[in-house]
Simulated scan of single mutants.
Amino acid sequence: MIYEFQGFIPVVHPSSFVHPLAAVIGNVIIGKDVYVGPGAAIRGDWGEIIIEDGCNVQENCTIHMFPGKSITLKKGAHIGHGAIIHGANIGANCLVGMNAVLMDDVSLGDECIVGALTFIKGGTEIPNRKMVVGNPAKIIKDITDDMIAWKTKGTALYQKLPGQCHETLKEVEPLREIPEDRPAAQEALYQTLEEFKNK
């Protein structure tokens, strides 16, 4: 659902997909080819949230901040299931792992990878191309070209997903038995995965 708040109406590019079970509130700008999954909460009630082109905000993520802050998820940022971005700025082509928490005034450099369940305390600055893990978070190594190529390919799958959702996702009643002609595989997904492997 998309909600106006104090005169701010979210802006969502038509190529992007916001699941109806997500909540996007107020001062939010969503660029091109962005996927927002069910259960995500993007609350632009206390400040501006900009989600640039090609990002994805997966299921049950929360994006919010303290009053008066504005935050940006730069192009190609990949926010894994259940992650919390609270007043943090995310660099271009970053991967934030599942259930990670990034607190206020964190600055995550470009092409970083944050491990699942990592906690990055407020005010932390992470330089470009670092691997960050743990609670409290620690930088453990540099990101290699191969690692960022792997991340970029994974994000490309999510950049195709908004178009696939616009074309085929619809609310239905469940079937009560398995039909004889049920497809053996999700062909579109497997084709995309083959492209992923072959790049």
Rank of each mutant, 00 (worst) to 15 (best):
E180P: 11
K141F: 06
V172E: 13
V132R: 15
K121D: 07
A92R: 00
H78C: 06
D142Q: 07
D145Q: 12
M65T: 09
N99Q: 09
K32Y: 01
G76P: 04
M131C: 08
R176N: 11
V96M: 04
R182F: 11
I25D: 01
D53Y: 04
A41L: 15
G68V: 07
M65S: 13
W46P: 00
R43W: 06
P183C: 01
P179Q: 11
A149G: 04
K199T: 15
V11G: 00
A83M: 01
N135F: 09
A100P: 14
A149N: 10
D146C: 00
H19R: 12
K170Y: 06
A188K: 14
V133Y: 15
C55N: 09
G68Q: 07
E4V: 11
N128E: 11
L175E: 09
P10G: 01
I9A: 10
G97Y: 06
Y3T: 03
G122D: 12
L157C: 03
R176T: 14
H78V: 06
D145I: 10
I85K: 05
I71S: 00
Q159R: 15
I25P: 03
V101W: 08
H81Q: 07
A83H: 01
S70Q: 14
D145R: 08
P162Q: 11
E48G: 02
G54W: 02
I9C: 09
N198L: 14
Q58K: 14
V114G: 02
F119C: 11
W46I: 00
F5E: 00
L117G: 09
E195W: 08
H64V: 07
M147I: 02
